[in-house]
Design a protein around this nucleic acid. Sequence first.
DNA 1: TCTTTGTATTATTTATTATAATACAAACCG
DNA 2: CGGTTTGTATTATAATAAATAATACAAAGA
Lengths: 120, 120
Amino acid sequence: MIIAINEYSDIPIYLQIRNQIVLGISDGRLQPGEQLPTVRGLAEEMGVNSMTVNKAYQLLKQEGYIYTDRRNGAKVREQLNFSPELSEESREALQRVISEAKIRGITKEDFCKICGKFYE
Amino acid sequence: MIIAINEYSDIPIYLQIRNQIVLGISDGRLQPGEQLPTVRGLAEEMGVNSMTVNKAYQLLKQEGYIYTDRRNGAKVREQLNFSPELSEESREALQRVISEAKIRGITKEDFCKICGKFYE
DNA sequence: TCTTTGTATTATTTATTATAATACAAACCG
DNA sequence: CGGTTTGTATTATAATAAATAATACAAAGA
């Protein structure tokens, strides 16, 4: 899976990496059990420091999306056993998005249509 | 309107202020044309630096939510004439939220229900 | 004139982010 | 066994962002 960063974004690189991998898992481009690039390999490919990639992997590991093995690298977890509820961070982010939507006059129905597109 | 900040949040104070004011506008706690607290007043009330509040107001002004007057302070804009579409930032944030929701097994229907709650 | 408003300026401190250069333990490979 | 590759730890440094502090200014109302 191609991971590209936007150097002009105000989102830190390590978070952009984390976000893209989570997105890849969610849309199936990364399968459960699939091998991720090595820390050094991805760092070189992206032109960033390997510790920056490591930071992203540490976060993904802590969040339960991946696991790592000293020898075998990082893999997507086979069973992503999360609770079927949004995290606190996501709920707050969603509230911010919806507050903007309301101000812009986007109806609940239209908003759900937009969500549907992201759901595919 | 009460503006409270979470000092343990990883969101900068000036953004927390900005977010709460946008939220207040969206749910009607702040009405169009309504006077906002003064920069210095709000800073003292919240126990933060006045330049931090000023930074939030600058952002809100730039985004088109409020306007300021050297003598009369800051007010919510009467006509919030935004395009009826989400900003790029909001769309990206929504995509991140939905990617997490999908991984957690939350269906599109359940997600729309959650959105409905935020819409009131 | 005095006060209050947002704003500008300058400096300093703190925290975060990113890079750099190594090093280490574990485990696989030939 | 020796060499290589893996994630990880360490230490230092640089760059940037965030927050505070202390003033000062122009505008405008009382």
